[in-house]
Amino acid sequence: MEVRTIKVFTTVDNINLHTQVVDMSMTYGQQFGPTYLDGADVTKIKPHNSHEGKTFYVLPNDDTLRVEAFEYYHTTDPSFLGRYMSALNHTKKWKYPQVNGLTSIKWADNNCYLATALLTLQQIELKFNPPALQDAYYRARAGEAANFCALILAYCNKTVGELGDVRETMSYLFQHANLDSCKRVLNVVCKTCGQQQTTLKGVEAVMYMGTLSYEQFKKGVQIPCTCGKQATKYLVQQESPFVMMSAPPAQYELKHGTFTCASEYTGNYQCGHYKHITSKETLYCIDGALLTKSSEYKGPITDVFYKENSYTTTIK
């Protein structure tokens, strides 16, 4: 009895394709271990004539594949690729409408935090270190965002349907971005203890939790000093293409032309909904596939993004 075979390709990165001759009487799992086709788990399936010449994702289970996976995804987590594939199996079914010149995501599976993050990423200057993220990001900007969303979920250790947080998501993504040249110098002034300067680099240099107003941050924000008295913390120097200011959701007025974009969060910790506000020729609110415009805006804002380049204080 002759062994019926077909020729397929296996890959971990969709760049390096490895030619395989597979036995049609055995499952993919018996031949390769966990195997995925377009995100779908085909591990328990036997090869079919229609699979001839198709590319299958496999887990990096030998040295060659491990090197290829690390170079593309910059992670050695053995569960990463499987999590990416199972997320992709959902995100490829989502709709990605162009809204006001940006790629958004039609609401499904509690994905409003991903839509808000995706919209924000198209408006701030950011370059990702893992080629996987950078490639998928370019495709997302062009309207094909399924891979990018699935990668975000995998890097953030999230599953489809789980509630997510924009600030946490951005923080994970910033860790995989090139923020080497970003720098922030802060000064804390206390009447009792004097003053202390701190220099922050990388992710810490672009994120701040405690106030939404970048102007206020430049002037000074009140913080408790270690001595128990009130101290003032203010920005001395900022070198970065953008800054992200966050605070627990509270009524906040966004003035046209003073910011790049913002995240609105309605609801409580267990259950809520994100919308995205962007400042173009007027203010726009993007909620999944829905767009509304207004000249002014007041609502429960939790993150505001500002364009920056270089700032030095005039406070002496």
Rank of each mutant, 00 (worst) to 15 (best):
V3D: 14
T5H: 10
K7C: 10
V8L: 11
F9W: 12
V12K: 08
D13H: 01
H18D: 08
H18L: 07
Q20N: 15
V21E: 13
S25R: 13
Q30R: 15
F32Q: 13
G33K: 04
Y36P: 04
Y36A: 05
V42S: 08
T43S: 12
I45A: 13
H48D: 12
S50M: 13
T55M: 09
F56R: 03
F56P: 04
L59N: 14
L65F: 10
Y72R: 09
Y72F: 10
Y73M: 04
H74K: 08
T76H: 09
P78Q: 10
S79G: 13
S79E: 06
L81G: 07
L81V: 14
G82S: 14
Y84N: 04
A87S: 08
K92I: 10
W94P: 02
W94G: 02
Y96C: 04
P97N: 06
P97C: 15
Q98S: 08
G101M: 01
G101T: 05
L102C: 03
T103P: 04
I105Q: 05
Y113M: 05
L118K: 03
T120I: 13
E125C: 06
N129V: 08
P130W: 02
L133S: 04
Q134H: 12
D135H: 12
D135A: 10
Y138F: 13
R141W: 06
E144F: 09
L151I: 02
A154G: 05
K158N: 02
L163E: 11
D165G: 07
V166P: 02
R167Y: 02
M170K: 00
S171Q: 09
H176L: 13
A177T: 11
L179G: 01
T192W: 10
G194A: 04
Q195M: 14
Q196C: 14
Q197W: 07
T198K: 14
L200H: 15
V203F: 14
M207T: 09
Y208T: 08
Y208C: 10
G210M: 01
T211N: 10
L212N: 04
L212S: 03
Y214K: 03
V221G: 03
Q222T: 13
I223P: 01
I223W: 10
I223M: 10
Q237H: 14
Q238S: 01
Q238E: 00
S240L: 01
F242D: 00
M244W: 04
M245R: 01
P248E: 09
P249C: 02
P249Q: 03
A250Y: 08
L254Y: 00
H256E: 14
S263N: 14
G267L: 06
Y269W: 14
Q270G: 12
H273Q: 00
E281N: 08
Y284N: 08
C285L: 12
I286Q: 03
D287W: 01
G288A: 04
L291W: 14
T292G: 08
T292C: 12
S295W: 10
S310A: 13
T312M: 14
T313A: 14
